[in-house]
């Protein structure tokens, strides 16, 4: 065989372009194996055509890489389940096929992750991520709300307490500023010489207020009790609250119809029906 003629016959180009049938192809491969010149020429043609193809390289559209690789994986997994070794060796170059029928067309439709499927998956993932973000935000907002509600409740109760104190003080102030109240100074007896208190008594309304300036702390389990003395007889005017005894505020006592003097004794908690005179702490006449 004349090698040069063989090379120039154009059969190697046909081989490289995929025009030959199987028998012709096998023949070319035999020649290439037998003659280094043929082989070198064939390699050159293949490189030239490869370079021509590569000169036309294009960047695939965005997102295609993910879709194609996902489709590839799905396809080979699917194939692996059905036919473990379905592959027949693919010749490097093979005969150009005649137009295929429609049934064949149907067969070569690839497993394809479609645009819409990819978009749906992307949307699902996106929505999941958004849900997580919004859930976390919602949780944080809920916590903030609970904190705010607690703060609001505590402020409200503070305001309530302040209002109550204010109305008490206003009442006290009204008593102190009123002309109708007589001030009765109660001074310490020899058993409590430093003790000092005032009774504010309104003979018209019978109202009695007590204003402690200084009193010794009562013994444990005991309470101070105020008495009105009317015609020498003691009348219960009520026990002193701890705050009153400490001098923190005025205390309205029981109404007294008529009195000439007031006195305080130390009695058992809750008060006594009659005064224990030995414990008299302060006393004063109107």
């Amino acid at each position: 065989m004349n090698i040069q003629e063989y090379i120039e016959s154009g059969i190697l180009e046909q081989y490289a372009l995929g025009e030959l049938d199987e028998a012709q192809r096998a023949d070319v491969e035999r020649q290439a194996a037998a003659y280094p010149e043929v082989r070198a020429e064939l390699e050159q043609i293949e490189s030239a055509l490869g370079a021509y193809g590569e000169a036309h390289a294009l960047t695939p559209p965005a997102g295609m890489k993910e879709r194609v690789l996902a489709g590839f994986q799905a396809s080979i997994r699917q194939g692996a389940e059905q036919v473990p070794q379905a592959s027949t060796p693919e010749p490097v170059v093979r005969q150009m096929s005649a137009p295929t029928t429609e049934e064949e067309d149907a067969k070569i439709v690839p497993f394809r992750v479609s645009w819409s499927m990819a978009a749906a998956v992307a949307l699902l993932l996106l929505s999941g991520a958004a849900n997580l973000v919004f859930y976390n935000k919602w949780k944080a907002a809920e916590n903030d709300l609970v904190v705010a509600q607690n703060q609001q409740a505590s402020i409200a109760s503070t305001v309530q307490a302040v209002n109550k104190t204010l109305s008490t003080r206003n009442q006290e102030l009204a008593v102190l500023r009123s002309d109708q109240f007589k001030t009765v100074a109660l001074l310490g007896t020899p058993s409590a010489p430093g003790a000092n208190a005032r009774v504010l008594y309104n003979p018209t309304t019978k109202a009695v207020y007590l204003d402690v300036r200084k009193l010794p702390a009562p013994p444990p389990g005991k309470q101070y009790q105020l008495w009105a003395l009317d015609q020498g007889k003691p009348v219960d005017a009520g026990v002193l609250a701890a705050a009153t005894a400490a001098g923190d505020s005025l205390q309205q006592m029981k109404d007294i119809a008529s009195a000439q003097a007031f006195a305080m004794t130390v009695e058992k908690e809750g008060g006594s029906p009659t005064p224990t005179l030995s414990t008299m702490t302060v006393v004063g006449n109107i």
Binding site: P60, R67, V68, L69, F72, S75, S87, E90, R112
Partner: peptide, 15 residues
């Protein structure tokens, strides 16, 4: 072209 590229990968893999 995208389909064919994917088919190519599958074919390259199997053969």
């Amino acid at each position: 072209a995208e389909d064919v590229l994917q088919e190519s990968l599958v074919k390259i893999w199997h053969s």
